[in-house]
Write a protein that binds this DNA or RNA. Structure first.
Lengths: 135, 135
DNA sequence: GATGGACCCTGTAGCCGCTACAGGGTCAAC
DNA sequence: GTTGACCCTGTAGCGGCTACAGGGTCCATC
């Protein structure tokens, strides 16, 4: 992989903390453009790919679904657009996270109650957790 | 569906708030035992099924993975066992929920920061959100 | 007894975002 | 020339459903 300083898929993976299979997957679904190939048919990535994949990783780490990542990438490809849409996508994701947080907090409360209603030492036939789970 | 007062799959679904396809799926993977059949090959459920599926629904609503639900069901089928295992499974799920909560809270903080660093009115080429997402 | 519509049956494929093979090819070092 | 690390394509699997397609059954109404 030394033709004109391109990165191999493994090197790109290391540079961005992404698995090789994931990179190929991103290419297949059009998140990452297909790179040039070497004579031996190896993928050869440039710095644009590193940057783009880094963007994808960060957005994914923030929980953005791939479709939203795709939309964000489309926006970065149109630098003259107004950026309200970017803002909207981020707020939408923030609200999604807040909804999930609220759901999980309810869940935690329920599970704490459940855990406290029986602390072992019984037979299953007598266990209040099991009782509580039956409707 | 009036042979000996059995419930049809649709009736069981309504009684437990479960989709018909989901019930068939639970049967396929062995979460719900296969019921009797009518002369016309319709599934015919009894009160044991209603109770068991209700249990599954409640556990699923609490976020228990199906494999854990299966383990809980196995325990209810052995009423003479000590119930420490039940307690353990609940605590494990509680901890899983707490881990997810911590992750999501970090995410929310990040997203709030991101949302506040640009409030529209720019061009995408100038947008600090996009900037912040590039590594 | 014919018809219509609501329900049911099986089997298979799709969703998301990867991940893990199988069965091969390529490349650099020794 | 042989090892061993990497790469290639293609396909299948994960969890937990959900959505068909292409049929069969049941019951009420005419």
């Amino acid at each position: 992989m030394s033709e004109k300083s391109g990165l191999s898929i493994g090197a790109l993976g290391k540079a961005t903390g992404t698995g090789v299979e994931t990179i190929r997957y991103y290419e297949r679904i059009g998140i990452l453009p297909a790179p040039a190939r070497t004579a031996g048919n190896y993928r050869s990535y440039d710095m644009g790919h590193v940057r783009r994949l880094g963007f994808v990783r960060k957005a994914r780490d923030l929980g953005f679904p791939l479709e939203t990542v795709r939309a964000l990438l489309d926006l970065t490809d149109q630098p003259d657009m107004q950026c309200e849409k970017v803002d909207g996508l981020v707020l939408e994701q923030l609200h999604a996270v807040e909804r999930k947080l609220a759901d999980l907090e309810r869940l935690r409360t329920e599970l704490e109650r459940l855990a406290n209603c029986c602390r072992g030492g019984h037979q299953v036939s007598d266990c209040r957790i099991i009782e509580a789970l039956f409707p």
